[in-house]
């Protein structure tokens, strides 16, 4: 009965997922800003994301928390990550709802906050249904 993920070759590189994603997003920013005619800002955005990804990898060596967040093999830190994500989502949804109400009170359409709130609501309902079915 495994309590944690077995240390296979696949999972041993799991910690690279977030830095790779960060670097990939930096490349996306570079392309997007280059298309928008601001390649210098694109290079800056890429540099920031590469620096952030590198800082994560360095912090992983010194911090158990960062290591746990990147490796995802410690159930307590994974639970903390889930709760932190839920709190983040709650804050984001609160901001979206407030912005939507302010917009419609000003006689505006509420776009894009109404759509964002709709996506958040539908995602929550679908997630509850799927997770309930899966047990």
């Amino acid at each position: 009965m495994p309590t944690t993920t077995e240390p296979t070759a696949k999972t041993s590189r799991k910690y690279l997922a977030t830095p790779i994603f960060g670097t990939a997003m930096g490349l996306v920013y570079l392309v997007a800003l280059s298309i928008a005619g601001s390649p210098v800002w694109g290079v800056f955005a890429l540099a920031v994301m590469v620096a952030f990804s590198g800082a994560l990898l360095l912090a992983r060596r010194r911090s158990e928390t960062v290591k746990g967040l990147l490796d995802r093999n410690d159930e307590r830190i994974t639970a903390i990550d889930l709760r932190a994500t839920a709190i983040t989502a709650f804050a984001l949804i609160a901001v979206i709802l407030i912005a939507f109400v302010v917009q419609i009170a000003r006689g505006q359409s509420g776009w894009p906050y109404g759509m964002l709130g709709f996506v958040a609501g539908v995602t929550y309902v679908v997630a509850v249904i799927v997770l309930r079915v899966r047990g």
């Binding site: 495994p2 309590t3 944690t4 746990g68 093999n73 410690d74 159930e75 307590r76 830190i77």
Partner: peptide, 26 residues
Amino acid sequence: RLDVSRQTINSIETDRYTPSLPLAIA
């Protein structure tokens, strides 16, 4: 030995974290 962080062991010992059933069994 249990493949968890030292922080997790500390939290369990100080009753700040209740481990999952698989970890409790381990």
